[in-house]
Write a protein that binds this DNA or RNA. Structure first.
Lengths: 194, 194
DNA sequence: AGATTCCTTTTACATATGTTAAAAAAATCA
DNA sequence: TGATTTTTTTAACATATGTAAAAGGAATCT
C-alpha cells in the first residue's frame, strides 16, 4: 500500500504542468499503484491493449516493437516521464509494442478507465492528462523532423546534446534503433567523432 | 459571413468523433471563419505563433519548413483534416513552419484563444479538440515508425496504399521531402517499380 | 575468480541514397 | 497557340549506411 506522500515528487511535477486542487489530488491518489520491476522485466507485453497510464517513479524504461525479428526502440522514459502506447490507448486496438524496464524501476500505474471516469468530475485532471499528451505529441513531432532530414551523425550529435542522460545510461544497441540506424553504423559514427 | 448550415459537412465529421449538443454547435459556429486561399497562397507564415486552428473545408494544404534553404514538407491536409502546428500552439513559441494552400482552397479558421475559452463552459468541445489532437498524435507516431525503420521504397509503397490521394494530387517534389528523401531518389524508386 | 553471456567495435564488401547537372515532360501564362 | 516556367526523369559519380562475420571488451552469474 502507498505511504502518505510517497508520490509527492510526481505530484509536484503534475502541479507545474496543471495546478491541481486538494480534492483532485486526493481523488487521483487511490488510482496510483506503485509497482516494482526488475531490470529487463516486461512492464507490458506486445499484443496487450494499452489500458494503463504509466509514469516512471525511479529508474528507466523503454517502448519497443519487433521489426523483422529484431527490436526497434521507440521511446525512452526516465524519472517522472509519462509512458503510454498512444496508438493503442486512443484507438482501443491491441498494441504491437512492449514496455520494458531498463533498470530496476518503480513505476506508477494508473488504470486509464478509472482515470477517464474521473474527468467529468474533475476537469483539471482531464486538462493535466491532455497537456501531458500534448507534450508527448510535440516531442514526437521533433523526433519526426530529426528522422526526416538529419543524417545519422547529426541525429546522434543532437541526442548527445539534447538528452545526454540517454547516452550515459542506455545500451548503445537500443540507442541505435531509436536513431533509426544499425548498431554497426552507430559505432562507426562514434569512432569518427573521437 | 457564413450562411446557415454551410459548415454542416465539417460538423458532421465532428459529431462522429465526439457528439456535440445543439448548444455546443451553436456556440462553436460563430468562431468559424471561412476563408479562401488561392493555390500556392500562404495561410500562415514562418515565424508566426500558431493561434489558429484550421480545418480544410475544400481543397488541400501542407505544412512545411525550411532546412538548408530548401522546403521540407511535414504534413498534408485534405478535406475535413485538422491543421495545427502543435509545437507552437501548445508551447506558445513562434513556429518555424508555414501553412500553404496546395490548391484553391476554402479553410475554416478558428481562433484558438476563443476556442479554448469555451472549454470550461462546454466540456464536450474540449473533448472533441483533444480527440482530434490524439488522432494527429497517433498519425505522427505511425509516420515516425515508418521513417525509423522502412526503406525509402517501402515508405513510398506504403504511402501509395495508405494515402493514394496524396500521390494523385500532390507534386512529387513535395512528396519526396515528406518521405524524407530527395526528389531524384523518389524518381528512381518510381521508375524501378514500373 | 572463472566461465559464460552479452555488448561494442572493427573489417570488408554490398547497396541505397545523396549530389550535381542536363534533358525531357508537363503545366502555366500572356 | 506559343513561349516560358516548373516539374520530373535520367545519368554519372560520391558517400552514407546496411550486412555479415569476427574479435575485443564488459557485464553477469555461479
Amino acid at each position: 500500500m502507498l505511504q502518505a506522500d510517497q508520490l509527492k515528487p510526481l505530484f509536484d511535477v503534475f502541479n507545474l504542468i496543471q495546478p491541481l486542487s486538494f480534492q483532485v489530488t486526493e481523488a487521483l491518489k487511490p488510482l496510483c499503484q506503485l509497482r516494482y520491476f526488475k531490470k529487463h522485466e516486461e512492464i507490458q507485453a506486445i499484443g496487450a491493449t494499452c489500458k494503463t497510464v504509466y509514469f516512471v517513479f525511479s529508474g528507466a524504461a523503454r517502448i519497443f516493437y519487433l521489426k523483422d525479428g529484431h527490436e526497434v526502440t521507440e521511446y525512452f522514459a526516465f524519472e517522472n516521464d509519462l509512458i503510454i502506447r498512444a496508438e493503442s490507448l486512443f484507438t482501443g486496438n491491441p498494441s504491437k509494442k512492449a514496455i520494458q524496464a531498463l533498470e530496476n524501476s518503480n513505476v506508477v500505474a494508473i488504470s486509464s478507465e478509472a482515470l477517464f471516469r474521473l474527468f467529468d468530475q474533475y476537469p483539471d485532471l482531464e486538462k493535466l492528462f491532455n497537456k501531458l499528451v500534448q507534450r508527448s505529441y510535440v516531442e514526437t513531432l521533433k523526433r519526426l523532423e530529426n528522422l526526416q532530414f538529419l543524417t545519422a551523425e547529426e541525429r546522434y550529435r543532437k541526442l548527445l546534446t539534447d538528452h545526454p542522460e540517454i547516452i550515459q545510461k542506455i545500451p548503445l544497441k537500443y540507442i541505435a534503433s531509436y536513431l533509426g540506424i544499425t548498431q554497426v553504423s552507430l559505432s562507426r559514427i562514434r569512432s569518427s567523432l573521437r
